[in-house]
Design a protein around this nucleic acid. Sequence first.
DNA 1: CGTCCACAGGAATGACGGGCGG
DNA 2: CCGCCCGTCATTCCTGTGGACG
Length: 414
Amino acid sequence: MVNTNVLDDVFDNFVNRINIFKDREVLRHDYIPEKLPHREDQIRLLGERVAPVLKAARCSNIFIYGKTGTGKTAVTKYVLKHLEEKSKQYGAQVKFCYINCRTTGSEYRVFAELGHNVGISIPFTGLSVEEVTARFRVKLDAAHTLFIIVLDEVDALIKEKGDAFMYELTRINENLTQSKVSIIGISNDLRLKEFLDPRVFSSLSEEELVFRPYDASELRNILLERSKISFQDDVLTDSALSICSALAAAEHGDARRALDLLRVAGEVAERQEAKNITAEHVQQAEKHIEHNRVVEALNNLTLHSKLVLLSVYHLNKASATTGEIYDVYNELCGEFGAGLLTQRRLGSLINELDSMGIVNAKVVSMGRYGRTKKIRFEIPRSLIRDVFGADVRFSNIIDYKPQTPKKHVLNNNH
DNA sequence: CGTCCACAGGAATGACGGGCGG
DNA sequence: CCGCCCGTCATTCCTGTGGACG
């Protein structure tokens, strides 16, 4: 009885509350707005580069550089969206394919994704990369079209797997007679050319485009523009707007971060049933975002990565070495009934945790007492307790089934 | 100033789940 | 169904190394 009353209140409150948002989707960073402030130049330049496509000519390969949240992806998608409309209008044969290399993960999956895009189904394993490329090429050639491939965050894939697949891609036109391919590469890392074979680099960077980070006042404009569509009038205070743009500007002018901050601040204000969004809400949002990011990362770790983290936790030191961690990890595996990995493997797991920003691993030399990694938490210890439970040792380390020790989870998402 | 620790991290190899062509 | 191929992840084996100690 009591429960339903409480719930009634919750729902009634929600409905009757003063609405802060008009359209919260607008603040998601994958939303492409009608207007991209301070990127007019880039839009025009990119537009000029891809325009030949409308007259059935292949456009140059383009390389786009810029740090995260500088609008590379947004501008590219924006331009291609309009190009698509125009190409329909003029009846030009153009196809587009957008691939995020970091989430796609491997050379094989990139080609599989390309294949899907031209309408062939490709199993998630079992074929050689060459086979997949060949099928893609045949199907593409039969399509009689210009094909623009956007490879977002290519730097991630190149650093991990090398540039052989890029070489393959840049040469694909040689084997096509009816269709042509253009590549738009997007990189977060300005030093990417150091990782590339000069031949690949030169054919890939027929044109280059650099995106500078936004400064605080530019971020402010962007936020202002979006807040007009996303929030009710007069909800966002000036101080909140300023602190949002200042915080994001301090972090290399990341517009994505600024937008997240603003959206979450709005949600915080909404939950507190405030009439408007204040600087206070923004600061709470900042903590909130960081917390969520880490919790999600922790929950998605594999069993062994979790065990490694717990080992570091139990060591309870300012910084632990690989050897120490391996000892504790060994013990934990025994208690847990899990098969243990080698120290070599553990080293890579630690590196992964490091690149995720969960731990900090630094290689240090201790003279003739060896060379090791010093590992310390980059996140508060309390968070480990929160996520893995109060009794950390025998904690609910989720979904582990001792009788069917799964080796690795198949990446079977479509 | 050479030694030598305690690992780092690259390369080769194996196990596994899976697709393909016949 | 079979024999063969593949990509991925983990293991094994290996060489490399920074700098405090003696």
